[in-house]
């Protein structure tokens, strides 16, 4: 018998290097290109909103855990930082500071902590925060600063509509598609992100870059983004083919609004998405479908956040019915 006491536990006696902390850091890293892009487009405003959202999310999580729930605060896992960043990405860069804080409180306090904290929330906290703000303060949430021209000014920024809002307005007033197109930014601008909008959603290119990193690190799998993008493309494509005068073309649908941010970062949120590839594809398709329905037939110009939240509610059901194929079950009959 050696003098030291041996440790006994069940196997496995080794574990992978990945941790929750590491996963969160990966998401933050993946968000950086889009963040840099929004700094470039919106300047100081973007910086202000992001910092405020991250700081208040972390602070609220700490305060709630420490003083209301009386548990050990878990802000070290980094999930609050990610929530804060994602919330900021869904806000216009000229949003008043107190609205950002209210949004963070809703995201952390209502959407996350009241369900039991990390891992137990059925809905994406950042999106709940955004939708709450969107419904409560529609004007502030939809007056977007114009890209680039406004980046140096802090107050009274020049605001303008997003491409999607232009389209929605145009269709409402029976403006022909060809005429609308002249008002809209080019596809290249849309892809790079020289357009108005929420601070993180504008640049498809930067978001795809981040998405590639997440795929490489295996934080997300391809199923949800691809299923969602394809559904949006195919569904709006069919509508466009049926009557090109009434509907905008699918490429425009994909490149505008929060489609890429939603597909790569919001819908793939681990906690609120299904567990199996089959389920992920159904989930992605559902989001794509609802998004297009809201955009084309609904009252709002944009529907990604609503679509994701609606599909979030279906996740338990999807998980129940989309089981992985079990070894040995097929052959057994």
């Amino acid at each position: 018998m050696s003098q030291q006491k041996l440790t006994v536990s069940l196997s496995p006696h080794t574990s992978g290097k990945d941790s929750v902390h590491r996963v969160m850091i990966d998401v933050v890293i993946a968000l950086l290109p889009a963040l840099a892009m929004s700094f470039y487009i919106f300047g100081f405003g973007a910086f202000r909103v992001t910092l405020l959202a991250v700081f208040s999310c972390v602070l609220f999580e700490y305060l709630i855990q420490k003083f209301m729930l009386k548990v050990k605060p878990t802000i070290n896992d980094g999930s609050a930082v990610v929530t804060g960043m994602l919330l900021a990405f869904n806000l216009p860069s000229n949003l008043p500071w107190w609205m950002v804080i209210v949004g963070s409180l809703v995201a952390i306090g209502i959407a996350k902590m009241s369900f039991g904290g990390l891992g137990n929330n059925p809905f994406n906290p950042a999106l709940v925060g955004r939708v709450f703000l969107f419904i409560s303060f529609p004007v502030a949430m939809t007056s977007w600063p114009k890209p680039i021209v406004t980046r140096m000014s802090l107050v009274d920024a020049v605001t303008g509509a997003t491409p999607l809002a232009i389209v929605k307005e145009g269709f409402k007033n029976n403006v022909a598609v060809t005429e609308l197109m002249t008002k809209l930014p080019s596809y290249l601008d849309l892809f790079i992100g020289k357009v108005g909008g929420s601070l993180g959603e504008i640049s498809a290119a930067a978001l795809i870059l981040g998405g590639m990193y997440l795929l490489y690190r295996k934080v997300i799998s391809w199923h949800i983004p691809i299923a969602m993008l394809l559904t949006v493309f195919v569904f709006s494509g069919i509508l466009w083919r049926v009557s090109p005068d009434k509907y905008i073309d699918p490429l425009f649908q994909i490149l505008t609004g929060g489609i890429f941010l939603g597909a790569i970062f919001m819908a793939t949120d681990m906690v609120t998405s299904p567990m199996t590839p089959k389920g992920m594809i159904i989930f992605g398709c559902g989001i794509g479908l609802i998004t297009v329905v809201i955009r084309v037939f609904g009252a709002y110009p944009e529907g990604v956040s609503f679509a994701i939240l609606i599909m979030n509610a279906f996740v338990p059901l999807i998980d129940k019915f989309c089981k992985p194929s079990k070894y040995g079950l097929v052959k057994n009959g």
């Binding site: 896992d77 990390l118 891992g119 681990m270 906690v271 567990m275």
Partner: peptide, 10 residues
């Protein structure tokens, strides 16, 4: 830590 439903085990 709590399960973050990352689905890696699955």
């Amino acid at each position: 830590l709590p399960c973050i439903r990352c689905a890696r085990c699955v």
